[in-house]
Computed example of a mutant assay.
Amino acid sequence: MTIPSTGQPLVSIGVPVFNGENYVEQALGSVLAQTMGDFEIVVSDNASTDRTSMICQDLAATDRRIRYYRNERNLGAGANYNLAFAKSRGTYFKWLAHDDRIKPGYLAATVATLDQAPDAVLCNTVVDYINGQGEHIAFYDSGLSGADHPRPSHRFATMILMSHSCVDFFGLCRRATLVDSMLHGPFHGADRAFLAQMALRGRLLQVKEPLVEMREHDQRYTRAKQDAKGRAAWHDAAKAKARSLPTWRLYREYVDLVAKERLAPAERTACRLALLRWWIVNWNSIRASVDIGALAWPRLPHHAEMVKIRLFGKAPGHF
């Protein structure tokens, strides 16, 4: 039986998990080891079939700050991420993947940074990439500091035109900014759309010290799900057999955000000009074409990516 926590915490950490017995204890332990203790951990278990439930409930029984919830069936990653947020209560919120870790000073540093910048909505740090055994691979600066700018159009253009691996989806956010946001959409690329929306709503800040550890391993989503249908099903279990055009869906989300978010006319126009440029950067036109081909050949995106890597190398933030 989970012992409930009391009071409203300053920070909520949402941990969505499915069959995470390999790393979830390390992820939760990294939060419990924070130098700032005013937090809660909300574990949303997506109907795991391994020892995840036992591990999480055992930890929850020893610390009131951990609250464990289990879905009756697998809802897909998007819905499960959003449930973790819905059940949280903190002034600040952060998602933590079950296979990642945060270093002891992460919350203290990111909370202090946001406290000092009322117009900022998200803060993350440089990433320390680790392997399956927890050994250091490389440091990665996503370029998030480029979105620390007073103009929404500049921030938006930075996030949609810059090549980055979306690690900042897992940054610390103001809860008030998230309440009516898209959160984790049910499609491949939803993390990019989320960051674009946050950029339209406020400054995005970066702590240059590497205080988050992201794990590269064979079962990571981007490694385990190589075909279009598999990626669609991972995000939304109800769409396991559905056809998808993720690049086109992402662009439509960008267009809708620019139309619906509160922007001055000149800023809205500048964002739309950035959307025109989007087609000629980062292989986006080719990706859109590959999406169409994947309707007949689901593994085409994987093969296209392998060809690109052989010819031009891996994109920044991919190891």
Rank of each mutant, 00 (worst) to 15 (best):
G189R: 10
M159L: 10
V42I: 15
F139Q: 03
T113H: 12
L211Y: 01
A274G: 09
L10V: 10
R73I: 12
A288V: 02
M36P: 14
T269F: 14
E261R: 07
P246R: 10
P265S: 01
P150C: 02
N19W: 03
A233Y: 00
P186D: 12
Y81T: 13
K241D: 12
A237G: 00
F156P: 00
S181H: 08
L172T: 00
S88G: 04
D227R: 01
M1H: 14
M54V: 15
A27Q: 04
N131A: 06
S181E: 07
S244K: 10
F319S: 10
L75V: 10
L195G: 04
L75S: 11
R175F: 01
K229S: 06
A193Q: 03
G29P: 04
G146N: 04
S181L: 01
N282W: 05
I292W: 07
P152V: 00
H188S: 11
R89W: 11
T222F: 15
G189V: 02
A240H: 14
G317F: 08
L122R: 03
T269R: 10
T222D: 07
Y92M: 05
V258Y: 07
R252W: 09
L96I: 15
V258M: 02
R299Y: 05
A232C: 15
D168T: 12
L96Q: 11
A296D: 08
W279I: 09
Y140Q: 03
T177L: 08
Y23C: 05
Y69N: 05
V43S: 03
F18I: 14
R65S: 00
A77Y: 11
R310D: 02
V290G: 01
G143S: 12
A315N: 07
R67D: 06
R268Q: 11
L114G: 00
K87R: 09
D227M: 01
L144S: 04
Q219M: 09
I286C: 11
F187W: 11
V42P: 06
V42F: 09
F18W: 09
